[in-house]
Simulated scan of single mutants.
Amino acid sequence: MPAYENRYWTSADGLKLHYRYYSGDMMKAPLLCLPGLTRNARDYDALAARLAGSRQILAVNLRGRGGSEYARDPMTYVPATYVEDVQRLIAELELTRAIAVGTSLGGIVTMLLKAAGAPIVGAIINDVGPDIDPRGLSRIRSYVGRGSAFPTWMHAARAVQDTNADVYPDWGIEEWLAMAKRLYRLTSSGRIVLDYDLKIAEPFRVPGGEAGPDMWAALTSLSDVPVLVVRGGRSDVLSSETAERMLAALGQGELVTVPGVGHTPTLVEPMLQASVDRLLARADG
């Protein structure tokens, strides 16, 4: 894995928030990587490894995840607050351009950031859209916020496999172990637990808590920059119909569907690499 620095910034309500910083060519637009609802910056390890040194990479931990402080008020675990948090990071670093990579919730935040005027010059929207398939939404609501703990990494890996076998049907135990180590952390007592604040579920379970007010308008704000829409062929979150409608709404869009994968693609699948590289080159302009 390439070396990274642990860096921090402060939210408007005083939380210490964390991101992984990977150094790279400062003449190119940096990557701003935003993870999914229950995920963290470690989800972007493999992408950072593939692009190491080619540009700066900022892999963000949203509030309540990974190395970021947990919110005092769980009702701040909503997209509008995540957008405000990331805007403060952009302002603190004085970024004049960035390429956003948003997976699931991170894709929603990406759309809302651009609509709010963030200097997004390109985006990868990974397996999410303005309309979320009710099947996937129901599945996510069934597990988010439910705590679990394991005595060993192998126990955690087997549990992750049981939950996600339909998402990655071709994975072996090595992939499941790697995913477990992205999802969970080892506590001082030796237990392996989820690496997020379980209270993120509180606003998510409120109807509308999973997205912003008008996500199609937010998507349209990206119509002036290159966008790569990635969809898992087995996804129960982003339907093929919504993905096609997204492509029609984007002025410079490309859609790639990854067969045999559900929610979400890892973004380092071999068939995606040329499309990712093309998006980065177009965004650098």
Rank of each mutant, 00 (worst) to 15 (best):
A41M: 11
Y143P: 04
D214C: 07
A283N: 08
L62S: 09
T163N: 15
R185N: 09
A123V: 11
P130L: 07
L183P: 04
R278S: 15
N6S: 12
A49T: 14
V258M: 15
L47G: 04
M26H: 10
W176T: 01
L62N: 14
D133T: 13
L183I: 15
S235Y: 04
S235I: 05
I99T: 02
S104K: 01
L31S: 11
V230F: 05
M1I: 04
D170F: 04
P259F: 08
A274M: 03
A46S: 13
V144R: 00
S23L: 05
L47P: 03
L219D: 02
T266M: 14
N126P: 10
I99R: 04
F150A: 02
T242H: 02
L219A: 04
L222E: 02
P270G: 00
E175G: 14
P35R: 05
G64F: 06
A157H: 09
A71K: 08
V160S: 11
L95T: 10
Y8T: 07
S138I: 12
E69I: 11
A178W: 12
Y22L: 03
D224Y: 02
N6D: 15
P207S: 12
E84R: 10
D214L: 06
T242Y: 04
Q56P: 14
G102A: 06
D195G: 00
M215H: 08
V229R: 05
G172Y: 03
P169C: 06
A283V: 07
D214R: 05
L32R: 05
I125S: 00
G253H: 04
Y82F: 10
P30D: 05
D73S: 13
E5S: 10
Y168M: 12
G136F: 09
M75T: 14
A80P: 00
Y143D: 01
A46N: 06
G251M: 01
Q56Y: 09
R234H: 15
K199R: 15
G172F: 08
S240I: 10
K199I: 03
A180V: 01
Y143A: 02
E175N: 13
L272K: 08
T257I: 07
A159M: 08
V83Y: 10
R7C: 15
G106P: 06
T257H: 06
R7H: 12
Y143V: 13
S148Y: 00
I108P: 11
L247V: 05
G145V: 12
P265F: 10
V258E: 13
D284G: 00
L272Y: 03
G64Y: 08
D162G: 10
A281H: 05
H263I: 14
L105W: 13
V167K: 00
G285V: 11
A201C: 08
A165I: 11
R55S: 02
T81D: 05
Y184K: 06
A159C: 04
K16G: 10
S142F: 03
M179N: 14
H155A: 15
R50C: 13
S23H: 04
L37W: 10
T266D: 08
Q161R: 15
R39Q: 08
A29P: 05
R245S: 07
D43A: 07
K114A: 15
V227G: 02
D284L: 00
R141T: 11
I192C: 01
H155R: 13
L177Q: 13
R65H: 09
L31V: 10
C33T: 00
L93S: 04
V261S: 09
